[in-house]
Structure formats: structure tokens, C-alpha cells
């Protein structure tokens, strides 16, 4: 459901929407497939540290990622595998990072979801929630100062992350500067184990959009069609100079916080409610209903995703791990600093 801040005209299914929907669905399948594989590797003891998956959040994530263009900035959060792929992060990056390979974007120095490609404007998150909001905002400020036009930035947060001071400072600053920032709040009902009622007191997190002075949308995060329509609208508004956009997408996390967490504290009624639907199943049914794909086609896409993941995994598994003796134990980049003086 869209709130009153949205423009009145409806986003009809237009020419090209079918292709976009199909493309988004394929990214969702690939994201789910690679994350299922990562989960299996974690259970097999092949992944050091935590394992954080985005099951059930693929629709909203991919919708934002697919609406961004090359040159835009994306600051994904932990459950944004689908959006990362749609924006252009290679499948190699997630596998190399989770498996701690020297060939990965962090060279084994950081793991799991803390990967990015800053030069390609995919910003790596830190674990402290909300911290990325002002970083993306600052990048957009810089582009504006440099005279760039026609760019947007997007970043994500969860229901729990909206309670941090960092989130508030970053989003308020983006609003003050009227930056082209699309902020997605994916309300998956739980922050680790903490339910919404212990997290915030407003009726809907989108109510905060009014407080920040930005345009806001509240919607069903399990419906890819609605996700694509709202994301397209918000990205277009941001790109056209209407300032920050706040999308609140409701869904249910279809797993625990991480693979070590069975999520047994989650209310069964939530999972049985409309927002407890699996967005991939919803999209699958929609595709078949629309006649855009039949069962065998969807099955073929699933198999393709599986083959892609297996192919990349087989290559990545043979790649080298970082070697402590060869590691450059230096946190400074500057040639102006004499390395002998470091530490």
C-alpha cells in the first residue's frame, strides 16, 4: 500500500516491465541459490564466522538494485544479495569473501557481508548499523560539488537499524542537503530476536518520512511487482531532484538472524500472514498467471542459477587462501608515511 505522499497516477504494467520483472526474478533465484549454497557450506564447516542470508527479502532488494544505473552508488546491507547481483556485483565476490579467499575483494581481511567495490560505487558495510547512510550521502554530496548530474545513491537498513543514532544523523543530513538518496527500510519484523514492538513506537516506520521531510512509501515487500513499481518511482523521483526517498517494505525474515539462529522465537502467525509469504513463490505464481513463463521455463531458470553457482564455486574453491607470512600488515596507504615509522 502506498501512502499519500506518492504521486496519484498508477504505475501500470508498461512495455518493458515484463522483461524487467523476469530479469529481477532471475536475480532473485540466483541470490537464493547462492545463499542456500553458502548456508550449506557454513553447516559443513567451510565458512569461518557468521553466515547472514537474505531469504524472503530478495524482492525489495532486487527492485532497488535493478533500478540503479552504472555510475549510481549502492550501499547494501546484510540481506541485499539480490540487489548486489542486479547492480553488478559478480557472483565471485560473495563466494570468495565467505570462503576467505585471497582473490576476493577483501583478500580475507574481512568476511561475509562486509564486501564491496568502492571504486565501482558498491560500498562495503561495517557491522555498526546506520553507519553507511551518511557515507552514501557524503558520496552524493561530493558528486554534486563536482558538478555531476543524473546520479542517485541507494542504501538499506532494517527495522532495528532505524533505532540507531547513526541512521538518524545520516538520513537527516541527507534530507537537509536534499540529496538523491533512496533509503530502503526492510521491516522484516525482527532485529535479530527483538520484535517490532520492542524496537519502535510509531504505527509504521514510514511515518518518520514526514519527520525527516522526505517522500515515503510503505509497501508489501513480498510482492515483486509492487517492489519494482515503488523502487522505479522512488529512484526516478530522487534522480529528478525531489530529494531523499524512504521506502518501507514489510516482509518476514524467512530464517534466523544468521545460520546459527533457528529463529524459533518468531511468531507463527506472522509467517502465516500475507507478509510471511516467500517473495520468490509469489513472483513465480505471478509469472505463470501472467503467462510470462511456464513451469518448465522457471525450472530451467532455477537450474541455470544452480549451474552458475556451482561453476563459480568450483573455481573459487581452488583459489588460494591468504598467507600470513605474505600479508602486508599495514593499515596506512600513504606513500607520505615512512613505513618504518608505522606502528
Amino acid at each position: 500500500m502506498l501512502n499519500s505522499l506518492r504521486e496519484p497516477e498508477s504505475e501500470a504494467v508498461h512495455l518493458g516491465f515484463q522483461e524487467q520483472y523476469v530479469s529481477a526474478f532471475k536475480w532473485m533465484l540466483l541470490a537464493r541459490t547462492v545463499e542456500d549454497k553458502i548456508g550449506a557450506l557454513w553447516r559443513a564447516g567451510k565458512v569461518a564466522g557468521g553466515c547472514y542470508l537474505g531469504r524472503g527479502q530478495e524482492a525489495i532488494s532486487v527492485a532497488v538494485g535493478i533500478m540503479l544505473k552504472p555510475g549510481d552508488t549502492f550501499g547494501p546491507l546484510i540481506r541485499d544479495q539480490a540487489g548486489r547481483l542486479a547492480f553488478g556485483e559478480p557472483l565471485f565476490d560473495i563466494l570468495r569473501t565467505y570462503l576467505g579467499k585471497k582473490t576476493g575483494p577483501t583478500k580475507g581481511r574481512d568476511g561475509n557481508v562486509h564486501r564491496g567495490r568502492p571504486r565501482e560505487r558498491i560500498y562495503p558495510m561495517i557491522s555498526h548499523l546506520g553507519a553507511l547512510v551518511s557515507v552514501v550521502a557524503g558520496a552524493l554530496m561530493a558528486r554534486r560539488m563536482q558538478g555531476d548530474t543524473n546520479f542517485v545513491g541507494a542504501t538499506s537498513i532494517g527495522d532495528g537499524g532505524t533505532s540507531t543514532g547513526s541512521f538518524h544523523e545520516g538520513f537527516n543530513m541527507a534530507a537537509v542537503e536534499r540529496l538523491p538518496l533512496v533509503l530502503t527500510v526492510t521491516n522484516n519484523q525482527y532485529a535479530y530476536s527483538t520484535p517490532n514492538e520492542r524496537q519502535f513506537a510509531c504505527h509504521d516506520l514510514v511515518d518518520r518520512a514526514i519527520g525527516y521531510g522526505v517522500e515515503g512509501y510503505s509497501m508489501d515487500g513480498t510482492d515483486l511487482k509492487e517492489c519494482l513499481e515503488v523502487a522505479a518511482h522512488a529512484v526516478r523521483r530522487a534522480r529528478s531532484g525531489f530529494g531523499p526517498q524512504m521506502i518501507v517494505a514489510s516482509c518476514v525474515r524467512l530464517s534466523g538472524h544468521a545460520e546459527h539462529d533457528d529463529g524459533s522465537y518468531m511468531e507463527k502467525t506472522l509467517l502465516e500472514s500475507p507478509i510471511g509469504r516467500d517473495c520468490i513463490k509469489v513472483a513465480h505464481s505471478f509469472l505463470v498467471e501472467q503467462g510470462w513463463a511456464d513451469e518448465s521455463t522457471v525450472q530451467e531458470w532455477r537450474l541455470n542459477a544452480k549451474m552458475d553457482v556451482e561453476d563459480v564455486l568450483q573455481r573459487v574453491q581452488r583459489e588460494p587462501a591468504p598467507v600470513p607470512e605474505e600479508e602486508d600488515w599495514n593499515a596506512f596507504s600513504s606513500h607520505l608515511i615512512d613505513p618504518d615509522l608505522s606502528a
Binding site: S134, A142, Q146, G165, G170
Partner: peptide
């Protein structure tokens, strides 16, 4: 002028520096 937001002041500077500022 920035808002009274030390966290966002530094965070935005990080983002801007990644864009060459």
C-alpha cells in the same frame, strides 16, 4: 554548516573522499 551530527559529519566525509574529495 553541518547539522549537529558528528557521526554523519565523519561518515559523509568518508563517502566524499571515496569520490575523490
Amino acid at each position: 554548516d553541518s547539522p549537529i551530527s558528528e557521526d554523519a559529519m565523519v561518515g559523509s566525509a568518508i563517502g566524499a573522499s571515496l569520490e575523490g574529495m
